[in-house]
Design a protein around this nucleic acid. Structure first.
Lengths: 141, 141
DNA sequence: CAATTAATGATACAAAGTATCACTAGATGG
DNA sequence: CCATCTAGTGATACTTTGTATCATTAATTG
């Protein structure tokens, strides 16, 4: 299963395919996100896009989450961060020093979920994994 | 490595060992927690213990988190839940239907972290894993 | 181009938690 | 045992992250 890369230009099309209108504000938000990709906060987007209302930014972020275009992850203290989903199924590394978000896929994870599935009663419907690191840059510095 | 079970009666002693005073309110909170164990919310504790101030409940929860007595976990929507840490290192299953929290240990997890550590630059300092399930009870029902 | 419907933005609100600060209660030393 | 000192408490205000409401505006569709 090769990682599926999502090209930024397709992002609006994905929203359109889901039956949403392509509006000015949505275009603005998506355009801003295309220039990001690293971890960012929703409130930060509001600051960088003052022409779009806060509610609309949060609404658009929610749509992109539901569409799988964005991922929401949590720092160790629980603070939320968003990141562009570059692959269809992946997990994140978050540097606890500088906040940089990376991602990885690991087949061991699939095996882990199968192993857990065999151990517990009930049916696995999803999971969340965050790996907290000190990134190479922060180690060097 | 056998799971280390923490006996509820020791909880106050753990706080004392960490240099905290054993006070009335802390005793009340710990006593309430001993009768729980399943997932619960902080605000819920406030409702069940109106004689203790909200700030003190949140402060005590924070102390217990730092002491490793409580775990904080997140539902799929990000809503926080707390649970008593019955083992020294473990992860959680959360039923998305009824909210019941379970826990498990899995050596595959340790292997997974080693595999990821070899793949990424930087140093792993921690991780968070939540497994979302439909529990047996909800499957039957 | 008019009518319809989705989307927007301002605002209020909600949930979860932290900061402040005057006051209280444990600990400690004489 | 009392005075003192410091940690802890509770009321309250505030912060952060998001959602609900609702009148207005902009896309779509016939």
């Amino acid at each position: 299963m090769a990682p599926t890369r999502l090209s930024p230009p397709d992002l609006l099309a994905i929203l359109e395919d889901r039956g949403y209108r392509i509006t000015g504000p949505r275009r603005d938000v998506v355009r801003l996100l295309e220039r990001k990709g690293e971890g960012f906060g929703a409130e930060q987007l509001c600051g960088e896009l003052p022409s779009v209302g806060r509610a609309t930014i949060y609404r658009t972020v929610r749509l992109l989450l539901e569409a799988g275009i964005l991922c929401k992850l949590a720092l160790p203290n629980g603070a939320p961060k968003y990141t562009l989903a570059r692959f269809d199924h992946h997990h994140h590394t978050v540097c606890t020093q500088c906040g940089t978000v990376g991602d990885f896929r690991d087949s061991t994870m699939e095996r882990l979920m199968r192993a857990i599935g065999a151990e517990i009663p009930g049916q696995i419907v999803g999971h969340r994994l965050e790996v907290y690191i000190t990134c190479q840059g922060c180690l060097d510095r």
